[in-house]
Structures are given as structure tokens and as C-alpha cells.
């Protein structure tokens, strides 16, 4: 379980001389994990993926896939075990889904002919398999791209922003699909995204990148607990002044007023009722209380300076 499928050491890359786009990146993706690669737009996620696949030439450092250094000698062997979907899927729009899959299957060896139908079934495109890709919606194209990367039953699937342009239903389907692949076949999945909620719900591991530097890398569980047990809550009340006095009596510090909400920190969920009771006792009307997403805060604090 501890084997690393992707392991980079001191990876450096820059498109121009003035700026480092990837700086000393150490990416560690354990076998069997769903690894979420998180970062704001332009932080170097796609660049990293291109470096992993050898599409870009690294300036220094190492990339190891499946425990073997990735170089011109091991390139074919390693890529044989990888399925990748990089940004916009590479599809021939004047051909239909089956033809696109046929081309992808021809490039790889030993793909049984029935596999094309299988992957179409998996991504739920069987009904549109004879339709030209030109007529596909963005979500369908994305799914066909995924089907192409699934063709060879790869050990590692790399998905660059797979939910980009999908509607909520499509996102949920994609999420289920990813989890299923991981659970059923033990496929290691590497997903890049700029949406924290996406990663949080799907992934077991997470790496957060900004300006080409890795800021945090561990399990999602660890990320959640790193913020500690305390949680932030937002309370909407009618009388702010009164509410503030109540909270002061409860010895709540760090109280702040954000967008008409009172924001306070509590030790645990039980304390929320204590706060509400205290407010109601003073006839302060409480319209809503919501727990803020810790991770979101953390992500923002990590990625915004």
C-alpha cells in the first residue's frame, strides 16, 4: 500500500527564464489512492501533469512512475500503464465515438474489440456512439475523453480538471465513476482541480499547489484534522449589539461581523446550542446558524498569500 505510483523529486520547470513555473515539486501519489491535486488557476497543475507524462522537458529533478525513473528508455513501458485526460479531451470531431475509440485502441496493443462497447457503457454514451463528436455537448466530450483513457484498463488514470464544464448531474456521475474505478479495480487516480469541494468528496489524498510550489501534501483526513477541532460558525440575528453582549458574556473571543453575519469560533457542535439558547434568552432572534467549511478556509488561507 505504501508503494508510490507517482514520485517526483525536486522537479523544476519554467516556460520563461524570468519565472519558475514549477519549483522543487515533490509529488507523492500512493498506490490505490485517489489523489486530488488542488490549486488555483495558473498554479502549475497542468504543467505538472505534462511533466509527469513527458510532454514537457523538465529542467531538473526526477519523475518516477510505478517505481521506475521516467526517461526515454522507460517511457513506453510506463505510459502503457497510464490513461490520461489532459485539459480538453483530444477528440476527432468529424468522427463518431466508436471511431474515436477505435483509433485510441489501435494505438495501444491487446485491446479486445468488446472493450469499446464496455467503456461506452461505463461512461453512459452507448446511446450516442454513432453520433459525430461535433454534435456532442461538452459533458459528453469529457466523458468520451474519459472512456478513451479507460480503454486499456490502466493502473494509473490522470485526469486534468475532469469536471470542467459538466453540469451538477455530470459532476456527480463523474465522481461516482471515479470512486467505482478505484474501489473495483484498485486503479490509482490522480485528479487535478481548482475546486476544493470536488477533491474533498472524492479523494483520499490531497496535494495543494500554488505558484508551482507544493504547500501541503497528505491524506484528506489529515488535512481536515490539521485545522483542529475548533469550527467557525456564522449566525444571522436581528440585533447585533445585543448579540455581541451575549457573546461577550459567554467569553467568546474572536467575534466578528462579516456580511451581516456574526462569525464566532466554537469548540464543538454542542456549544452551538449553548450559544443559541443564550441568544434566545435575551430575545435576540436567530434566523440561521451555519458551520463554515473549514477546508475552504484553509484552502483559501493556503492559496491566497
Amino acid at each position: 500500500m505504501n508503494q508510490l505510483i507517482v514520485d517526483t523529486k525536486k522537479l523544476n520547470f519554467s516556460y520563461t527564464k524570468t519565472r519558475k513555473d514549477i519549483e522543487n515539486l515533490e509529488l507523492k501519489v500512493p498506490k490505490g489512492s485517489i489523489y486530488g491535486f488542488l490549486g488555483p488557476n495558473g498554479s502549475g497543475k497542468s504543467t505538472t501533469i505534462r511533466l509527469l507524462l513527458g510532454l514537457l522537458k523538465k529542467q531538473s529533478g526526477n519523475v518516477a512512475l510505478f517505481g521506475e525513473l521516467f526517461n526515454s528508455k522507460t517511457r513506453l513501458k510506463s505510459l502503457d500503464k497510464v490513461g490520461a485526460l489532459i485539459e480538453n479531451p483530444s477528440l476527432y470531431e468529424h468522427l463518431n465515438a466508436v471511431e474515436n475509440l477505435k483509433i485510441a485502441a489501435n494505438y495501444r496493443q491487446n485491446i479486445p474489440s468488446g472493450r469499446i462497447e464496455e467503456v461506452l457503457e461505463i461512461v453512459k454514451l452507448s446511446h450516442a456512439k454513432k453520433k459525430k463528436v461535433k454534435a456532442y455537448s461538452l459533458g459528453m466530450k469529457q466523458r468520451l475523453g474519459l472512456a478513451i483513457s479507460l480503454l486499456s484498463n490502466p493502473e494509473l488514470i490522470i485526469l486534468d480538471e475532469p469536471t470542467n464544464g459538466l453540469d451538477p448531474k455530470g459532476i456527480i456521475e463523474m465522481r461516482t465513476l471515479i470512486k467505482e474505478l478505484n474501489e473495483k479495480y484498485g486503479t490509482t487516480i490522480f485528479i487535478s482541480s481548482h475546486l476544493l469541494s470536488e477533491i474533498e468528496r472524492t479523494c483520499t489524498h490531497v496535494g495543494i499547489i500554488r505558484d508551482g510550489k507544493m504547500l501541503f501534501q497528505d491524506t484528506v483526513k489529515e488535512l481536515k484534522s490539521s485545522k483542529g477541532q475548533k469550527m467557525m460558525i456564522d449566525i444571522e440575528v436581528d440585533k447585533f449589539i445585543d448579540a455581541m453582549t451575549v457573546l461577550e458574556k459567554l467569553q467568546k473571543e474572536n467575534t466578528s461581523l462579516v456580511d451581516e453575519f456574526l462569525q464566532i469560533e466554537v469548540e464543538n457542535k454542542d456549544e452551538i446550542t449553548v450559544v443559541i439558547d443564550a441568544l434566545r434568552a435575551q430575545n435576540v432572534k436567530v434566523y440561521q446558524v451555519s458551520i463554515k467549511n473549514n477546508l475552504e478556509e484553509l484552502f483559501l488561507s493556503l492559496t491566497e498569500n
Partner: peptide, 18 residues
Amino acid sequence: QVEHKSHGIKHLFSLPIP
């Protein structure tokens, strides 16, 4: 152009083919 239009080069170069 058929290849460029479909963003094909990056895909081809990430396949296990020389």
C-alpha cells in the same frame, strides 16, 4: 490540421507509442 484541431498531439505523445 486534423490533429491540431483536436488537440491531438499532446494525446499522441502521452500514449505508449514512439
